[in-house]
Simulated scan of single mutants.
Amino acid sequence: MAKKSVKELLDAGVHFGHLTRKWNPNMAPYIFMEKNGIHIIDLHKTAVKLETACNALQQMTSSGRKVLFVATKKQAKDIVSKYAEEVNMPYITERWPGGMLTNFVTIRKAVKKMNAIDKMKKDGTFESLSKKERLQVNRQRAKLEKDLGSISDMTRLPSALFIVDIVNEHIAVKEAQKLNIPVFAMVDTNSDPREVDFAIPANDDATKSIEIIMQTVTEAIKEGLSTRKAEKVKAKDLDKKREKGNSEEE
């Protein structure tokens, strides 16, 4: 698994925290110093925490489990959606739908509604509607796509969440806590790292910082997925050998 050096993290501006007056005291162990009224994150600790998170994500995805990525802030959404799509993981980048986890059944109903509209368009039922009805259905489909399009294939609750900015995504954090779903997150100096299971101390506002963390995390997930694929091929080959052995005995 590709590790990120302290220099690489430094070049990406991962060390820049928030103004000192906006800090959360629970981030003290991860703060290196204060400079010009801004807290500087200890990148040696970031590197260690990032590696720990990556190892856990690699192990998780190698057993076929899904990670839901969450980032609705402007500077993070495009980066997160790009990397989540690369590893075929679900993501929320528009708006966190309240009850996304705690009321998952209702969310699934909304996804089914979206799929039902798609079916109407395929089988010709849509064309039999009036112009006004078609307009209403199209608007409804567009809204559902915007909010839920990226999770339409998620048939069960995710095994973990990866969040950029836990202050901004506090509802997602609370829902995951209620259901004991582990949370991985980029945690800036204004956040409480105790809120999540795998805190990665990092600047969660700058695009370069978000990019390098997302890149590293998805590399680990890719390795986990590759391991799973290799194990499936191995199991398939073993089954074929057994079948061949049984047929020869007969």
Rank of each mutant, 00 (worst) to 15 (best):
S5W: 00
V6Q: 11
K7D: 12
E8D: 10
L10H: 12
L10I: 04
A12H: 04
G13Y: 08
V14S: 10
N24S: 05
A28P: 00
A28Q: 11
F32R: 12
N36E: 12
H39Q: 14
H39R: 13
I41T: 07
D42S: 06
H44W: 01
K49A: 15
T61R: 06
S63C: 00
R65N: 15
F69E: 07
A76D: 11
K82P: 01
K82D: 12
Y83V: 12
Y83S: 04
P90K: 01
P90R: 01
Y91D: 11
T93E: 11
T93Q: 07
E94G: 10
R95H: 14
R95M: 13
W96N: 01
L101S: 03
N103H: 11
T106N: 04
I107Q: 09
R108N: 13
R108P: 08
V111W: 05
A116W: 02
D123S: 02
F126K: 02
E127W: 05
L129A: 06
S130H: 03
S130N: 03
Q136I: 06
Q136V: 06
R139L: 11
A142W: 01
E145V: 01
K146E: 06
G149D: 08
S152T: 12
M154N: 12
M154G: 11
R156M: 11
P158T: 02
S159E: 15
S159H: 14
V164T: 10
D165I: 00
I166T: 14
V167H: 11
N168M: 01
H170Q: 11
I171N: 06
I171F: 03
Q177W: 00
N180H: 14
I181P: 07
P182K: 05
P182R: 06
V183S: 11
V183R: 07
F184E: 08
F184A: 05
M186A: 11
M186R: 05
M186F: 10
S191Y: 02
V196I: 09
D205A: 12
T207Q: 14
K208A: 13
K208E: 14
I213R: 07
V217T: 08
I221V: 14
L225Y: 04
T227P: 00
E231A: 10
K232E: 15
L238P: 00
L238F: 04
R242I: 15
R242F: 13
N246W: 02
S247K: 08
